[in-house]
């Protein structure tokens, strides 16, 4: 597989997952913040932006400015629009590798964004978020049903897994967990699409510790951090051509993922909650470092080189 194409696929995975996660966040959190008058709206919005790693700059932070930053603005690198545009651009550069259906799905999604933004201006951001969630779900389905399970699929899936860890950590960093109110915790669960499952598993016992445990290490929930860590580990193992684990894991990226997974599995749920801030920071560091290691190992530098001419007598 061409390094450049592998890198594109990896980023398609990341952008798709990012768009989906952001659409959930905007949908659930913004609605909640808007619906709860009396709470310190601006502070909450600022916390949300901080969790997403967005600097709001100077000036007031309002629900509409947050929607612009996280959803609509092409120029805001943190926006859903930017993520889907980047996904489509990467797909455009890898079209001969993607299935026609997958390419078409990404292309159509991108073409439809402008129209949904206009609709959202009238009907509210939910229209836009709904569209994005529906399209990403469809695209993910096509990945699952049309992509050959080769290294290309593995790089794409790796992108999805790492992004999912990253977004989960960011969601856990919002004060929702600390506040502990049931409605807020439910919103948090909804924003990762895990509310119904949680209710079944914990019989409705919504406590910060339960929520943290569920989001961090439920072995069966595909949206838990531990699940994605295990997935990323397995994918890296399959990607490693000269694999030999007899004397331990040589691949630094895989070792780091495994250590983190064990750290989550063997903590008590109370410890999980207590250590949360440092865990979140470690998780964010971990995804970023893993991404760098995968990049330098598999993607090489496919840079455009600017050559200079030289002449000597």
């Amino acid at each position: 597989m061409l390094s450049r194409i592998a890198e594109s696929l990896y980023w398609i995975g990341r952008y798709l997952e990012r768009a989906d996660a952001k659409a959930r966040v905007v949908d659930v959190h913004l609605t909640r913040i808007q619906d709860e008058p009396g709470t310190d709206q601006e502070r909450q919005l600022r916390t949300l932006l901080a969790a997403m790693g967005v600097d709001p700059g100077d000036g007031a932070v309002t629900p509409s400015s947050v929607v612009a930053l996280l959803a609509f603005d092409q120029d805001s690198p943190a926006s859903i629009t930017a993520a889907l545009t980047a996904a489509r651009e990467n797909a455009r550069g890898a079209r001969e590798i993607l299935s026609s259906e997958l390419w078409e799905a990404l292309n159509v999604t991108w073409h439809g964004l402008a129209e949904r933004r206009m609709a959202a201006a009238v009907l509210g951001p939910q229209v836009f978020c709904y569209y994005v969630r529906e399209r990403t779900a469809m695209t993910t389905g096509l990945i699952s049903t049309t992509m050959v399970r080769d290294d290309g699929w593995r790089f794409l899936s790796l992108g999805v897994a790492l992004e999912r860890i990253d977004m989960a950590a960011r969601m856990l960093s919002t004060p929702a967990l600390a506040e502990g109110r049931a409605s807020v915790l439910a919103g948090l669960l909804r924003s990762v699409g895990g509310h119904d499952t949680f209710v079944r598993v914990y019989q409705g016992a919504v406590s910060p510790a339960n929520v943290a445990e569920f989001l961090l290490r439920d072995q069966l929930s595909p949206r838990s951090v531990a699940f994605s860590l295990a997935a990323a580990e397995a994918l890296l193992r399959e990607l490693d051509p000269g694999l030999d684990d007899r004397l331990g894991v040589a691949d630094g990226a895989r070792r780091a993922l495994g250590r983190m997974r064990l750290a989550l599995e063997f903590r008590s749920s109370a410890e999980l909650l207590d250590d949360l801030p440092s865990l979140i920071e470690s998780l964010l560091r971990l995804t970023s470092r893993t991404s760098d290691e995968v990049t330098s190992r598999y993607f090489g530098k496919s840079l455009h080189v600017r050559w200079a001419e030289e002449v000597a007598p």
Partner: peptide, 18 residues
Amino acid sequence: VTPLRGIYHGGDSQALGV
């Protein structure tokens, strides 16, 4: 007929005295 001609990437180039 240029005796030596080429392209490179990296730092600035300066012809050595011939």
